[in-house]
Amino acid sequence: MRRHDLVWLAPQAPWQVLTPGADARLRAWAEARLPFVVARRDPVTDGDQLRLGVPLPLAERRQRLSLRIERTHVQRTAPPPLLPEVAEALAAPWRDALPPLLADLPEPTPPPRVFGSFAWQSLTGLPYLHAGSDLDLLWQITEHTHAAALTERMRRWEREHGLRIDGELRFPGGRCVSWREYAGGAARLLVKSDDACWLSTRDALLTQPVAA
């Protein structure tokens, strides 16, 4: 299981709550058969356990809850939803602006996956979106020329539609970087993996072993 993946737990699962006072809300969340999201682990404190999160909806001030649990207690997993799956339920202006983005992607680009507020509203049916919400996308990247073409396409789309995309480029080995930071041309980039976070040169994104 990787960062941003979704997991489902039994309400009685023996987890360790990391947000003080949140156990009852987390149990109710699991009882409603809603997903949890895989967060970045800290091998020192988490060991082999998963660290999971729940971002609550607008009515609960978007508070973020977290817990730690053994992998054996996960009942089901899924990757984040694909953008076409989420886009079908969106209102204007997003509903009309997204088809052009998906129709004009550089090759080879599979449809991006969605995390953040757009994904959670689609997954739960609860209100997460507000007027200033950004669309968080996770793009699978194969090489630097691919990343450069894709980031330029997103910049052009933002200028054309007046909307904002956030999110990450996922390089081989699960190395993720902010697409905006990548597009900014910095020599060193903040990389996030499933269990580490470090600064990397651009070349190392494709050649360096994943940090432990």
Rank of each mutant, 00 (worst) to 15 (best):
L50Q: 11
V54P: 00
V54F: 00
L56N: 08
P57K: 01
P57H: 03
L58V: 10
E60C: 03
R62T: 09
Q63E: 13
Q63M: 07
S66R: 09
L67Q: 01
R68Q: 14
I69T: 03
E70W: 06
R71G: 14
R71P: 11
Q75E: 15
Q75T: 08
R76I: 06
T77Y: 00
A78P: 11
A78S: 13
A78L: 11
P79N: 12
P81A: 06
P81H: 03
A87S: 14
E88C: 05
A89L: 15
P93W: 02
W94S: 13
D96S: 15
L98A: 04
L101M: 00
L101W: 00
L102S: 08
A103H: 02
D104I: 10
L105D: 04
L105Q: 02
P106F: 06
P106K: 06
P112E: 07
P112V: 02
F115P: 10
G116H: 02
S117Q: 11
A119P: 13
A119K: 12
Q121C: 01
S122Q: 15
T124I: 13
T124H: 03
G125D: 13
G125E: 13
Y128P: 12
A131M: 08
L135P: 09
D136K: 05
L138M: 13
L138F: 05
L138E: 00
T142V: 14
E143V: 04
H146Q: 00
A147F: 12
A147T: 13
A147G: 09
T151N: 04
E152N: 04
R153H: 03
R155P: 06
R155I: 04
R155Y: 04
E158K: 07
E158I: 13
E158S: 05
E160S: 10
L163Y: 05
E168R: 08
L169K: 05
R170E: 15
F171Y: 09
G173V: 11
G173W: 07
R175E: 09
C176Q: 10
V177Q: 05
S178L: 14
W179F: 11
W179H: 14
R180L: 14
Y182F: 14
Y182N: 02
